[in-house]
């Protein structure tokens, strides 16, 4: 397994070039090669959604993709949203509505919701439930996550 392959990938606007083993998971690449620890790993079998990132704009589970498959593609992780001092409106809404507890699943949920809100700027509650159905949260019971997404849609559509 020692043969290395070159990978050139744009993550959050920065181009990274690395040589990696073909079996290296994209989640491990993002975390341990690039040091972007906001992407969390909860199950490594594609069920929990904690490692969700945007791959050419689409939400995907980075634990189900090899890093070499990302060659030439564009990735966005939670670090591309706001910073602690300047939260993205979606992050602000999660803060205001208590949409997180331990926060481990949160980056994956945020990265699922970002493209969802782009496509559904005024989502119904059912649409939100459906959208985040693939992200498991053990802490919140989802109710406040749904309220957060609703609040975010209002913030974002009113441009606040």
């Amino acid at each position: 397994m020692s043969q290395l392959f070159p990978v050139k990938v744009t993550v959050n606007g920065t181009v990274y070039e690395r040589e990696v083993e073909p079996r290296l998971l994209l989640s491990d690449f993002i975390r341990h090669e690039l040091g972007l620890f906001g992407t969390h790993v909860g199950c490594e079998h594609g069920m929990c959604g904690a490692c969700t990132i945007l791959f050419d704009g689409e939400p995907v589970r980075s634990c189900l993709i090899f890093a070499v498959q990302a060659n030439g593609h564009e990735i966005r992780t939670v670090e591309s949203l706001g910073s602690p001092d300047h939260l993205h409106p979606l992050q602000e809404a999660f803060h205001e509505k208590h949409g997180l507890q331990c926060g481990f699943c949160t980056p994956g949920i945020l990265m699922t919701v970002v493209p969802f809100l782009e496509e559904h700027p005024h989502p119904s509650e059912d649409e939100i439930r459906e959208a985040i159905d693939g992200n498991i949260c053990r802490c919140t019971g989802y109710e406040k996550i749904i309220e957060s997404v609703q609040a975010a849609s209002e913030k974002m559509s009113s441009g606040k």
């Binding site: 906001g38 706001g82 945020l110």
Partner: peptide
Amino acid sequence: DKHLLTGRAKFCDD
């Protein structure tokens, strides 16, 4: 919240 929401919070595997 702010550190958790922005992926800055440090967990064990970080």
